[in-house]
């Protein structure tokens, strides 16, 4: 297509959007709603995945021993654990270190209460190995292995928490993908409807164009542009809206959520929108293109 034909298509496409203002606004509105919801779901999904994976990466298994197990035996067990392929590291933590960490986490602001313990270590006999895995998937197997070692008193594994998080992640993914697919189809249908109206409004002009020797591209171009422009605007508006809302959420998160749980850390707007911008733009223009190309092929025999 030549530059002249391209600029004609753009002009006429924009003109057509203005002429069919009501239909254009209806499809634009749906498009904005679709991509806004898509954006919200993606934000939840991306953040949820981020939270799950950062939670997973910090997940460790603690292994505690019976009181009759000697230091040599503990060292031998540690060596065996470290030798396992699935294990990233197994660090030995004495009962004193465990108490020091615990008191730092829970009594730092309450020195009087801490002082009441005196020299006592309530976590005596809590010598342990803190096992970090290479891949969280191996957690179940390693937990079973650790539980079967002679001399091991207790294995603390956050398996059920991780399972629940993964299940929730899957439910959110499936339900949002289904909803997005439905919205996607509705948007394609509405764009197609707008283009059909545009074609019927310009039926006479199209007939004249055919007779005076306009090529297929020239006749179809404006309708394709119309669909793409609606798609583009329909993607940019929700992106701006989502950006504003996410910034607000981040601002709130710093003040409110961070105090709820240290691992509940949201991704930065930059990281989220590095995903959202190309996805929304591609989908918006794609929906516009799909809706208009199918319609033009079906309703505009040139």
């Amino acid at each position: 297509m030549s530059f002249k034909a391209f600029s004609y298509s753009v002009n006429q496409g924009l003109l057509s959007i203005r002429r069919n203002r009501m239909f254009s606004l209806a499809s634009l509105g749906t498009m904005v709603a679709c991509l806004f919801m898509l954006g919200v779901f993606l934000m939840i999904l991306i953040n949820f995945n981020h939270i799950v994976s950062s939670a997973e990466s910090t997940v460790t298994i603690s292994v505690y021993f019976n009181s009759d197990v000697s230091a040599e035996q503990i060292a031998e067990i540690g060596k065996n654990i470290n030798a396992r392929e699935e294990v990233e590291s197994a660090k030995y933590k004495t009962a004193d270190e465990a108490w020091a960490d615990f008191s730092k986490d829970y009594y730092e602001d309450n020195g009087d209460l801490l002082a009441s313990f005196g020299e006592d270590n309530p976590l005596g006999q809590s010598d342990s190995y803190i096992v970090t895995l290479k891949d969280v998937k191996d957690q179940k197997e390693i937990t079973k292995y650790l539980q079967n070692i002679t001399g091991v008193r207790y294995v603390n594994s956050p398996q059920s928490t991780m399972d629940a998080l993964n299940r929730l992640n899957r439910i959110i993914s499936i339900s949002s993908l289904t909803l997005i697919l439905i919205l996607f189809l509705v948007a394609v249908f509405l764009i197609s409807n707008t283009v059909v109206v545009g074609i019927s409004v310009r039926r006479e002009e199209i007939a004249i164009m055919r007779l005076i020797g306009a090529t297929d591209h020239f006749i179809r171009g404006p309708f394709i542009v119309e669909g793409m422009v609606l798609g583009l605007i329909g993607a940019v508006l929700p992106l701006l809206l989502l950006f504003g809302l996410y910034e607000l959420l981040l601002h709130m998160a710093v003040n409110e959520l961070a105090t709820m749980a240290s691992w509940l850390e949201l991704m930065s707007a930059g990281e989220i929108f590095a995903w959202l911008v190309p996805i929304c733009l591609l989908l918006g223009i794609g929906i516009g293109l799909l809706g208009s190309v199918f319609t033009v092929r079906k309703h505009l025999q040139v």
Partner: peptide, 22 residues
Amino acid sequence: THKGIPFIRRQIGTVFQDFRLL
């Protein structure tokens, strides 16, 4: 061919009873 039709039509000026003006 279908693609060639516009180029034939460009060499023919058509006038109709109902003018067909925009």
